[in-house]
Nucleic acid binder design. Structure first.
Length: 158
DNA sequence: GCCAACGTTGGC
DNA sequence: GCCAACGTTGGC
């Protein structure tokens, strides 16, 4: 069987809810709460264990990449869609054909914050989806070239 | 708090 | 299937 190529992603999280420190403390976290079909489809159809993840802090005083993680499970139903006490409860999601799917993410390491300004200023990152005007997608693919630039040139040590 | 961008909903 | 209204995201 041919070895699958590693893929790369940027995943946004609001640090008030789950920061890189939350992930570090937990070790792994289920990526709950995604309620956007495009982002769900990435988790359900495309992500694989071992894929690299740029952990991004959004909607906070210092938005930017705060650490590295990796996908560590296959897709499975997001349990919060069935929990009436959860803010992510979706009463329209059928039990037998759950609407929302997630993957687990494992902590690798924290990094000094790479701000949006840092990303915008760095050659080779101009096309990153997260930098596009009006972008709201919480999970976006990162190209191997972008991953290499970010992890090798913007993250000191290793 | 503002507001641009964009996804979703629902009437028709 | 169109599209206006509405809600949410997320940087600033």
């Amino acid at each position: 069987m041919a070895k699958q190529e590693q893929q790369f992603w940027l995943m946004k999280s609001e640090p008030d809810e789950a920061s890189i420190d939350t992930l570090q403390a937990a070790g792994t976290l289920p990526w709950t709460g995604v309620r956007n079909y495009q982002a769900r489809n990435f988790m359900r159809d495309t992500m694989r264990p071992g894929d690299g993840v740029l952990f991004y802090h959004s909607s906070c005083p210092e938005p930017g990449i705060a650490g590295l993680a990796e996908v560590c499970s296959g897709p499975y139903p997001d349990p919060t869609q069935f929990d009436p006490d959860s803010p992510y409860f979706d009463p329209k999601s059928p039990r037998d054909t759950p609407r929302w799917t997630l993957v687990d993410v494992r902590f690798i390491r924290k990094t000094p914050l790479i701000s949006l300004a840092d990303l915008r200023a760095h050659p080779g990152l101009e096309e990153m989806i997260v930098l596009r005007r009006g972008n709201r997608l919480s999970i976006t693919p990162v190209t191997p070239a972008e991953w290499r630039i970010i992890t090798r040139e913007l993250m000191p040590r290793a």
